[in-house]
Design a protein around this nucleic acid. Structure first.
Lengths: 185, 185
DNA sequence: TTGTTTGTACAGTAAAAACTGTACACAAAT
DNA sequence: ATTTGTGTACAGTTTTTACTGTACAAACAA
C-alpha cells in the first residue's frame, strides 16, 4: 500500500462513519458520503466534481447538496472565474449542530404547540358545556391534563432550543473541556 | 358532531402531529400513531388491542412497539390476571428526550470517535515516516488538523450528552419557566 | 402429556424512497 | 440573436423499507 492509498484509507473510514450516522440529521448515507468527500477536499466542489468523485448522477448531487445546504452542513462558495456553483462544508460544526435544532426540532415543536393549543381549546370549551355527560366530563378532564403536560414539555423543549441558538449551551458545556473542572476551587 | 366525536377529533389532531414528527426519533409515522394512540388510553394496551385500534397486523405492532421500547418511549406494564404483554407510554417525556440522546447520539459519537482515533493514529504514523514526500506530508498535515477538529467537536458533543444524562440541562433550562427571569434583580 | 395462547422469525408483497436520464429553463458568452 | 453551459423538474426505474400472513417456539393450562 503506497502512501496515497494510506491517506485514502484513513479518509474512507471517516467518510463511511459519517455516512452511517447521518440518518440522525434525517439524511441518507449517500448524502453523508457526499458531505464526507467534500470535507476532505481543500477546495470547494462543483456538482460535476461530485458526480465524478462519487459516481452518481448530477441530478442526485443537486438534490442532495440542497438537502445538505438546508441543514447548513454545506454552503455555497465563490471562486473568481468559476461559473459553476461551488460548495464547501460549513466549517463551524458546533453551529451546524445548533442549526439542526433550530431547523428540524424547532419546526416540530411549533407544530406540536399549535395542535396542542387547538385541541386544548376545544376540550376546554366542551368541558364548560353543561350538557356534557358526567362520564365524558371525566374523560375530557383527563385529556386536558395530558395536553397540559405535553404543552409544558414542548415549551421546555423550545427553551432548550433557544438555549442552543443563543449560545448559552456553551456556558453549560464549553467547547473545550475546562481543565480546572476537577480541581478544588 | 356528538361529544364523543369532538373528543376524538381533538385527540386525532395530536396523534397525527406526533406521527408527522416522529421521524426525528428515527421512527416511521405509523409508530407515531401507535404511540399517540397509547398516549390517550388510560390503560396499558396489549398487542391485540393495538391491532384492533390501528387496523394493522399484529406482527407490525410487535416490531413497532419494540422500536418504541428501545427508545424508551413506551414501557411494559403489568396488570394482575392479564397474561398478554402490556405496554404504556413512558410518563416522563423529559427523560424520554434525554434517553434519545443517550441512545442514538451517544452511539453515533462513540462510532465517530473510534474512527477518528484510528485514522488519526495512522496519519500521524505516516507523518513520522521520513520517506514521505514533501507534497504528501502537507496533505497529511491538513488531514490531521481536520481530524483534530472533528475530535474536539465530538468530545464536546459527548459532554453535551452527558450534561443531559446527568440532568444538568435542567440547571440551564428548568422544567418550568423561571417567572423571575425577566424581573430586575 | 396434550392442547391453548401469545409473541416473533421469516418469506413474500406492497408501498415508499432513492436514484437516473432526458428535457428544458435560465444565464452567460460570443 | 445565437450558441454554449449549468442546474433542476419531471417521469420512469431501481432499490429499500414497511407491512402482512403463515408458521412456529415458548409459556402456560388442563
Amino acid at each position: 500500500m503506497d502512501d496515497h492509498e494510506k491517506i485514502d484509507k484513513a479518509r474512507e473510514r471517516i467518510i463511511e462513519t459519517i455516512a452511517q450516522n447521518i440518518h440522525l440529521y434525517g439524511l441518507v448515507p449517500s448524502s453523508g458520503r457526499q458531505f464526507g468527500t467534500m470535507f476532505f477536499q481543500n477546495e470547494p466542489l462543483t456538482l460535476d466534481d461530485m458526480t465524478e468523485k462519487l459516481g452518481m448522477s448530477k441530478t442526485s448531487m443537486s438534490t442532495s447538496v440542497r438537502a445538505l445546504s438546508e441543514l447548513k452542513l454545506v454552503e455555497r462558495a465563490w471562486k473568481k472565474g468559476v461559473r459553476k456553483d461551488l460548495y464547501k462544508v460549513t466549517d463551524d460544526w458546533y453551529q451546524s449542530f445548533i442549526d439542526l435544532f433550530s431547523i428540524k426540532w424547532q419546526r416540530s415543536v411549533t407544530l406540536h404547540l399549535v395542535a396542542i393549543k387547538k385541541s386544548l381549546a376545544e376540550l376546554e370549551e366542551l368541558f364548560q358545556d353543561p350538557a356534557l355527560s358526567e362520564e365524558l366530563r371525566e374523560v375530557v378532564q383527563i385529556d386536558i391534563d395530558k395536553l397540559k403536560y405535553m404543552k409544558d414539555y414542548y415549551n421546555w423543549l423550545e427553551r432548550v432550543i433557544d438555549a442552543f441558538e443563543d449560545q448559552q449551551i456553551f456556558d453549560l458545556v464549553p467547547k473545550f473541556e475546562d481543565s480546572n473542572k476537577n480541581a478544588k476551587k
